[in-house]
Design a protein around this nucleic acid. Structure first.
Lengths: 346, 346
DNA sequence: TCCGTTGATTGAAAGGTTTCAAAATCTGGG
DNA sequence: CCCAGATTTTGAAACCTTTCAATCAACGGA
């Protein structure tokens, strides 16, 4: 009883099945695609033959003949970031509902990987592509569209309207965070995040500033602590910078552009012996799973991640279906999830 | 300047390119696959024609003709678990090195999804499959092998040796955790994890028990707190159960079967006002990124995640290459990463 | 018995690429 | 100027499936 690719080298084709069942090859195809049209007796015979031979339909030949695949692709920016895996989850659910399959690729934040994946996907004649780009303006994205492959931009936006896109209103998110902290009575707050080359960071800061000034508070009391990246280590570093300030100058609250950074800050704060939120209130952004699992559960701005993916997939499906299609820019509203890290216990 | 699938409906084929360049279709193919064999002048002409027409090679036709693809697949168990995304990362790196591409599928812990993905991948004639199965003994895994598609089991093992597999020695991992806690002077320790239907949990517990008895400690002082799953909430629940014990009976340390659970426990501990590690030392398992980012950096048993993926991919590639191939079971050794959560400050 | 119908099966074509033996073209030496 | 050999180019076959018009068989009604 050896593990063996039983028999010949080549895997059996419809022709082999037809021969084995004593029918024509067209009949086998009918069994596969329009079982109703073939008589019960022959159908049974053909199915038996398929099972015996271990027939597996050759997807390449099928697609070649049919001219179109039923596969969508999502090129994600960073597979290790829970945010994107949740988006992917939403995409998969929507695709499953429409009886499509999804292939997931990971550009890993590298433009060349993104390009390579896109090229490969075009060769694979995917029905459409969902993309979280390294750079939304990159020219190669346009060339996908020029080749007639529908593409939806996920979690980013572009200035023009050559594509559908779904994103979350980061300006509003920044506003929500600051409004919440102002509500809690804070009058000196740090904004921690960077680099400014990230549109997300820019927008969240812009929203924060706007809410701050609308609250009638002096601009210099919204202290910006720029970071080189949105990482745990940078968050920790920001915490140390805060600790270096005199008590009078030290903000009583911090809004981090990202939960990961906020977790770093929280770690530094607890390490320094500060009480959270007593000595320092913290608000993060993204509401990743670990935000609520932190030592002090983290207040955060939640983005509708799965819905983002679901909607993106639906837009893509709509675009593949409609010949005449108007590109839409969908913008979701984030919401603030208040938890212990920012709620004064009074 | 309208966004348009420029020109006709059908995308151009080699035949179109050949016509445009005034050469035969065989020559176009040569430009694509053996550029050295065609003269510089014609090559340049053909390439120009390709660019003008926006030619994209049809992967289906290509694979159909060639009979074999250059694609590996990884069917992962849970895309939202950082452990598996790191494994996937390792796989992608190895594949990239061998000039293969990888498609990632997600069974999301559901057997029917796993089956569906496997069936689809066989139809796609992937070169080989990497699988973290919902159940390593599932019969449909064997049927993949019977069809002659190489398959490597990732992060699980099987009793028989019909497949290559890569896994990490969980018994050793459990042993390392307990030896560390015993070294730190603990004589009453909790094991938190479950359900026992997970091989991982069983093995880690077994290793813990063995190390415990080898240290000459009485079995009843290794207290088992079973959980229904390895989640944050269950970890928190276990913490509450610990808090319910009298100080005399309460363990001074806990070994959690998983970092996620450990983070829940840590949260509960800090919430209760315990000092970590003073009142309760904690050791987790997996060393996920957030382990070191926790309020008290978490001691954890690290598995070589990327290497797991890399090795799995290499085994798969070896199996696809060798006609005669001996299946190997590779077992990696985990290592303990000691951090603040378990290091007595003496 | 013959015919029209319905239902089941067949056979050939098409889809885009690669391969490979054969044909065409070029090169340089005699 | 011709020929052998080297270099390029060509054309047809093959890969496997689906589609669809055409054929075949069976059956009931006249």
């Amino acid at each position: 009883m050896v593990t063996a690719s039983s028999g010949s080298g080549r895997s059996p084709s419809v022709k082999d099945v037809a021969a084995a069942a004593g029918v024509s090859l067209g009949t086998v195809s009918n069994v596969l695609n329009r079982p109703a049209v073939v008589s019960a007796a022959t159908r049974e015979r053909v199915e038996r033959a398929m099972a015996d031979l271990g027939f597996v339909r050759n997807e390449f030949a099928r697609q070649l003949r049919m001219g179109t695949s039923r596969t969508l692709a999502y090129v994600m920016l960073d597979a290790t970031n829970p945010f994107f895996t949740d988006v992917a989850q939403g995409i998969e659910l929507a695709a499953e509902g429409a009886d499509m399959s999804v292939v997931i690729c990971n550009s890993n934040n590298r433009a060349v990987r993104e390009q390579a994946h896109l090229a490969q996907l075009m060769e694979q004649r995917v029905l459409g592509i969902l993309l979280t780009p390294t750079d939304p303006q990159a020219p190669w994205i346009d060339s996908v569209a020029e080749r007639g492959v529908p593409l939806v931009i996920v979690d980013r936006t572009r200035d023009d309207d050559r594509f559908c896109s779904v994103a979350v209103d980061d300006v509003l998110g920044g506003r929500l965070a600051i409004e919440h902290l102002v509500d809690q009575g804070h009058t000196r707050v740090a904004f921690i995040g960077g680099p400014k080359s990230l549109g997300q960071v820019r927008d969240r800061y812009a929203g924060a500033q706007r809410a701050w000034s609308e609250a009638g508070l002096p601009p210099e009391d919204l202290v910006e602590l720029p970071t080189a990246a949105l990482t745990v280590a940078e968050g920790r570093g920001a915490g140390e910078r805060l600790a270096g300030l005199s008590a009078a100058r030290r903000p009583t609250a911090a809004f981090c552009a990202n939960d990961i950074t906020a977790l770093g800050l929280l770690q530094a704060a607890i390490g320094t012996g500060w009480r959270v939120p007593g000595d320092l209130a913290i608000v993060g952004y993204d509401d990743i799973e670990f935000a609520s699992a932190a030592a002090v559960p983290l207040t955060s701005v939640r983005q509708p991640r799965e819905e983002l993916g679901r909607t993106a997939a639906q837009l893509l499906l709509a675009e593949t279906a409609d010949e005449q299609h108007l590109h839409q820019q969908v913008v979701f509203k984030p919401e603030l999830v208040a938890r212990a890290s920012s709620l004064s216990t009074g």
